[in-house]
């Protein structure tokens, strides 16, 4: 028996919205400790990793580990039928399930919707990601990071991110010209202004803005985002989801000559 009930179903809707442009199908692994998922985009440039802890669910039961192979597009179609205030329950009682049941219930418990989604058998492409001590970690407003990436992508396809002890600089160079946005360390009380820089070693790395803009679809999951960088390593962009877990995106850098 597997059953997972989310009090705030809208979080699940937001997670699926955040990844649906990046990945088409995913294996969700359910275990006693919670749900996890890892998937790459078709070009194998970016990777998305989701972890949801059992403690963050209103009810959670998973008697034995199961893998749920899902089409994100089809999952998205079913989740459109859930209201933003609904609870969402995922359920299957089969050992090797061919479908996953969904229950959506509104706050007054006066409306209950029930759907079943056919599951797929997908090859697992799970990569081992070592625990990394990143040499530059930037925590800032997710909306501000999203705005910077969107603005710069009209000038260039790539952005160079350079850190120093005091600031982080986002630079672009395109056919029409060049520019940069520098964001300084700022210990403001307001989330929207706050910028936390933890810089052991400055880094300078270049990334494709197209992917960063896709990651920024997760902006509604968290008011802050953390950018984790080390030279010669993929960027790790993390959105923490309250008590539930985290959504992480990994992006391989561009290599300048």
């Amino acid at each position: 028996m597997f059953e997972a009930k989310l009090q705030q179903g809208v979080i699940f809707k937001k997670i699926v919205d955040a990844i649906k442009d990046l990945v088409k199908s995913v294996n969700i692994d359910a275990s006693t400790s919670g749900l996890s998922m890892q998937a790459m985009d078709s070009a194998h440039v970016a990777l998305v990793s989701l972890k949801l802890n059992e403690n963050g669910f209103k009810d959670y039961r998973c008697d034995r580990p199961i893998t749920l192979g899902l089409s994100i597009e089809n999952l998205s179609k079913i989740l459109k039928c859930a209201g933003n205030d609904d609870t969402i329950t995922l359920q299957t009682d089969e050992e090797e399930p061919s479908s996953l049941k969904f229950f959506f219930e509104n706050q007054q418990a006066s409306k209950i919707s029930e759907f079943s989604l056919n599951l797929m058998s997908l090859d697992s492409e799970s990569l081992g990601i070592p625990d990394t001590d990143y040499s530059s970690v930037i925590q800032m407003s997710s909306a501000e990071f999203s705005r910077i990436c969107k603005e710069l992508s009209s000038i260039s396809e790539t952005v160079e991110i350079e850190t120093s002890k005091e600031s982080v600089k986002f630079s672009v160079q395109g056919d029409i010209g060049a520019g940069s946005i520098t964001v300084k360390n700022n210990q403001s009380d307001k989330d929207v202004d706050r910028v936390d820089l933890q810089i052991d070693q400055p880094v300078k790395l270049t990334f494709a803005l197209r992917y960063l803009n896709m990651f920024n679809k997760a902006v509604s999951l968290s008011s802050t985002v953390s950018l984790n960088m080390s030279e010669e390593n993929p960027l790790m962009v993390e959105y923490k989801i309250d008590d539930l877990g985290s959504l992480r995106f990994y992006l391989a850098p561009k290599i300048s000559d």
């Binding site: 790459m40 396809e157 790539t158």
Partner: peptide, 14 residues
């Protein structure tokens, strides 16, 4: 354009 690395250049199959 700068060459784009792949995520599989850094992380291997688990």
């Amino acid at each position: 354009p700068d060459p784009q690395k792949k995520i599989t250049d850094y992380y291997k199959q688990a």
